[in-house]
C-alpha cells in the first residue's frame, strides 16, 4: 500500500501558513518560533515526546488555543482575535480529539447533523442525508439512532470523524485519535483515516502510529520542547534521522 502515498496528489495551493508563531502558558514557553507551510492535499504526521507542544500546535490552528506572537493563516483567513474569522476557520477545519468528545445527550445522527443545521443552516432533511452518507463511509450507519455511550471506543471515534466530515471541511486535524483506544480498535480508526487521506484531504495528525505515518504521510514532523526539530519525508525520516534527539525518540518508540 506504500505506493498509495506517492499516487496522492499534493497541489501547489497553500492551505495553512504558520509564521514565527510563539505561545506561552503563563511564563512557560510552549511553542517557539514555529514556521510551517502546509499545501492542499498534504498529509502531515506530527510526533514527539509528551509535552513537546504537538497537540498545542494543532489546537492553535483552529484557535482552541490562543497564540501570542506570529501569525497563522488558514485558507487565506488570518487567525486573529476577531470572532468572525475564528468561527469561519473553525467551520472549515475539522478536528478529532483523543477522547472523541461526542455529545452524550444527542444520538449519533444528531451529533452529525447539529453543526450543519445550526452553523451552515442546512435544511434538516439534507443534513440527515449527508450525515447518513458519512456514517456509511465510516461503516456504522446502523448505529445512527443510538447514543454515544452505547458504542465502543473505535466506533465513537469513527462517529467523531463523520461528525467533522459532515461540515465538509477542507482541512482535518487529528489530536492523538487512537491513543485512548484498545489495540483491537485502533485499526478500524486508522483505516478510516487512510481512506480519507486517499481522497486527498489535507490532514495534520498528531499520532504515535508510525505504521500510519509511513503509509500515509508525505511529511513527518518531529517536535521537542516546543520547537520543530526535524521534518522530512517518511522514508528518510525513519531510515535516516538527522538530529540526535530524533534518533533517540525513534529508537525508543520503534525499539519495543
Amino acid at each position: 500500500m506504500a505506493e498509495h502515498a506517492t499516487q496522492m496528489q499534493v497541489s501547489d495551493e497553500i492551505a495553512i501558513t504558520i509564521n514565527k508563531m510563539n505561545k506561552w502558558y503563563g511564563t512557560f514557553h510552549v511553542l517557539r518560533d514555529i514556521d510551517l507551510t502546509v499545501n492542499r492535499g498534504e498529509r502531515i504526521v506530527i510526533c514527539g515526546p509528551s509535552g513537546s507542544g504537538k497537540s498545542t500546535l494543532i489546537r492553535c490552528i483552529n484557535a482552541l488555543e490562543e497564540h501570542q506572537q506570529g501569525s497563522i493563516e488558514v485558507d487565506g483567513t488570518l487567525l486573529s482575535s476577531d470572532l468572525k474569522n475564528i468561527d469561519k476557520i473553525r467551520s472549515e477545519v475539522g478536528m478529532c480529539f483523543q477522547h472523541f468528545n461526542l455529545f452524550p445527550h444527542l444520538t449519533i445522527l444528531e451529533n452529525c447533523t447539529l453543526a450543519p443545521i445550526w452553523v451552515r443552516k442546512t435544511p434538516k432533511k439534507e443534513a440527515e442525508e449527508t450525515a447518513m452518507h458519512f456514517l456509511e463511509k465510516v461503516k456504522i450507519p446502523d448505529q445512527a439512532n443510538k447514543f454515544p455511550g452505547q458504542l465502543s471506543g473505535g466506533q465513537q471515534q469513527r462517529v467523531a470523524i463523520a461528525r467533522s466530515l459532515c461540515m465538509r471541511p477542507r482541512i482535518m486535524l487529528f489530536d492523538e485519535p487512537t491513543s485512548a483506544l484498545d489495540p483491537e480498535m485502533i485499526k478500524e480508526v486508522l483505516d478510516t483515516m487512510i481512506e480519507l487521506a486517499e481522497e486527498g484531504m489535507t490532514m495534520l495528525c498528531v499520532t504515535h502510529e508510525m505504521g500510519f505515518a509511513r503509509q500515509v504521510a508525505n511529511r513527518v514532523i518531529f517536535m521537542d520542547a516546543g520547537q520543530i526539530v526535524e521534518q522530512n519525508e517518511p522514508e528518510a525520516f525513519f531510515n535516516n534521522p538527522q538530529s540526535p534527539r530524533t534518533q533517540l525518540f525513534l529508537s525508543q518508540i520503534l525499539g519495543h
Binding site: 482552541l64 470572532l83 468561527d87 473553525r90 467551520s91 475539522g94 468528545n101 461526542l102 453543526a115 452553523v119
Partner: peptide
C-alpha cells in the same frame, strides 16, 4: 468535561 466546550467550538458553533 472541557472537551465538550472544545468539540462545540471546533465545529464552529458560536
Amino acid at each position: 468535561p472541557k472537551g465538550q466546550y472544545e468539540a462545540a467550538d471546533s465545529l464552529g458553533l458560536d
